[in-house]
Amino acid sequence: MSRLAKVFEQLAERGAKALVPYIVAGDPAPKHTVSLMHALVDSGADIIELGVPFSDPMAEGPTIQLAHERALEHHVSLSQVLDMVAEFRQTNADTPVVLMGYTNPVEHMGYSHFAERAKQAGVDGLLTVDMPPEEAGETSRLLRDAGMDNIFLLAPTSSDQRVAKVAALASGYLYCVSLKGVTGAGHLDIDSVREQMQRIRQHSDLPVTVGFGIKDGESASAIAPLCEGVVVGSALVDRLAKWDNAADTDKQIAEAVSLIADIRKAIDAVADA
């Protein structure tokens, strides 16, 4: 069983929901990424979505765009991101890591080469924002053969037919984009997410995480009962944007990930209620 499937199974047994933080690898600097990943796990993260920096992050709002730019100032490449995952795996064998990014760096490395290296590094899944199922056949096959999951987005604009098509190719979990917009947008609409979730459930038994617009315990606990997990990106990345290189690193990491501990408490409280 894959790490992702195992995590969702264990959470379901406990009646708990997955907490999935997102950070961009190399933000604010490459030397902090692995420590941050461990700190996120210690604060209650179940799965880590690790952003692969790209020069043209088309689906991101300003907060995450800047994170990509900060990482690229350090020339963080996909190859280095894979090294970071391998380093993380030296002391964490259980927490799934999903790479989230854009097609071009993966295409440039070569899909087959990527699948091989990612597997070796201990990556569990790939979510390519700009690669819908129509373009993903070969990539999905290579990932599957290497024992990794291909994770796809579903949007408020996805028709029933689309949901069925995406669900047929997806594995690991489905990522439900909560709103029409970019990451970090502020107009989360619970009723719309509920409606989307009903549509998704008709076509898939896969766990569903919801992301875009979840920024604190309150928004997370409103969404969590509808799905199997919540993704927290911009709100967390925004804390890294305020990083001060002159200050104490451990303290800053603790401050940044305290958001994840707060959200953990909030979604566990809803689950217990």
């Binding site: 689906a59 097609t103 700009d130 690669m131 373009e135 987005l153 689309r162």
Partner: peptide, 18 residues
């Protein structure tokens, strides 16, 4: 599907497909 040989296609996020 919008392909000219290996080129073209639709590499966008799901929201824009519709």
């Amino acid at each position: 599907e919008g392909h000219f040989g290996p080129y073209g296609g639709r590499f966008v996020s799901e929201t824009l497909i519709f």
